[in-house]
């Protein structure tokens, strides 16, 4: 027993000639500076006004922007603190001849306190974030909202208005006629059933025309694969899933023409799937309805 342990000590591998890495001081300085610099540049790029969220015309965007700012601040602090500390230890604790590292193996108390603080911050973020979500998605569109349907297909958006009767007519996949998508075409790209009186006054357009400052209730549908209704200016994104009817609602506050994109890979020409959101003043909107709805 004794012998064998002795043997162990004697025969432990001799430290192989270890050439200490060259220039430990230079490397430690360089790395620390690189870490700090990276952190500052990165944080600076995030803070720089050039890279802001796109201009928004949605009533709800202030809420989202506020939440984003808070979150950016929190993660910015965490990010900078972590990099400051990382640079510091790299700068300070390089190898020196004949010196030994501290044999510390941890400190459970510090660890618990830190984990607790992090948990509190993270959960607080999650809960404030949920309030925003709840106000956007967990309530119905207010009564009197403008009803519109958005029907996606490879690689086009179609929008349908119920017309004066306020009701959408029946559609049939077998009647889809993608070639003729002019306003008023029957059966048109959505395959409006000619036998359904409710569909007579429906308006189908390739542009989403909406009145400003009125809540819009949009039902998303898809004819083929999954698409995603994405309007950068509305801070809004929602998949249009075939076989499902998904309702979202929003209010656009400013007149203008804004791009609608597809944000879920839908095939070869995904990147070309563009439409416009045309926000008009209420009077122009009514006029537009009248002009296009009398077929």
């Amino acid at each position: 027993m004794k012998i064998c342990e002795l043997k162990l000590v004697i025969h432990s591998p001799l430290p192989t000639p270890h050439s200490p890495p060259p220039l430990p001081t230079l490397m430690s300085r360089l790395l620390a500076i690189a870490i700090w610099l990276t952190a500052i540049v990165t944080a600076g790029l995030f803070a720089w006004s050039k890279w802001r969220l796109p201009e928004s015309v949605a009533a709800h965007s202030a809420m989202i922007d506020h939440q984003f700012k808070i979150t950016l601040a929190v993660i910015g602090v965490g990010f900078l603190l972590a990099h400051a500390a990382l640079g510091y230890v790299v700068w300070r604790y390089r190898a020196k001849d004949g010196e030994r590292a501290s044999p510390s193996q941890g400190n459970a108390r510090v660890e618990f306190i830190l984990a607790g603080c992090v948990a509190v911050v993270f959960i607080a973020l999650a809960i404030t974030g949920q309030r925003v979500w709840a106000r956007l998605r967990l309530n119905q569109a207010p009564p009197g909202a403008v009803q519109i349907e958005a029907v996606a297909q490879q690689f086009v958006w179609n929008f349908r208005y119920p017309g004066p009767d306020g009701k959408f007519g029946r559609t049939d996949p077998r009647l889809y006629r993608d070639a003729d998508n002019s306003i008023g075409a029957r059966p048109g790209p959505l395959g409006l059933d000619p036998n359904d009186p409710l569909g007579k006054d429906d308006i189908v357009t390739p542009t989403l025309v909406a009145p400003a400052n009125r809540p819009i209730s949009l039902s998303l549908l898809s004819k083929d694969v999954i698409h995603d209704f994405y309007v950068p200016a509305l801070r809004m994104k929602q998949d249009a899933v075939p076989g499902m009817k998904i309702n979202i609602h929003f209010t656009a506050t400013r007149e203008g023409r804004y791009e609608i994109a597809c944000a879920e890979l839908c095939g070869q020409f995904h990147h070309q799937m563009r439409a416009y959101l045309d926000v008009k003043s209420p009077r122009d909107y009514e006029e537009w309805l009248k002009k296009n709805g009398k077929q």
Partner: peptide, 27 residues
Amino acid sequence: TLVIGVPSAVKTFNWLGTLWGARIRFT
């Protein structure tokens, strides 16, 4: 999802703790 950030933060903290008071060989 945010809760899973906590053990990840603990790990990061512990890596920093490992370097704290170390004698780093910059290999």
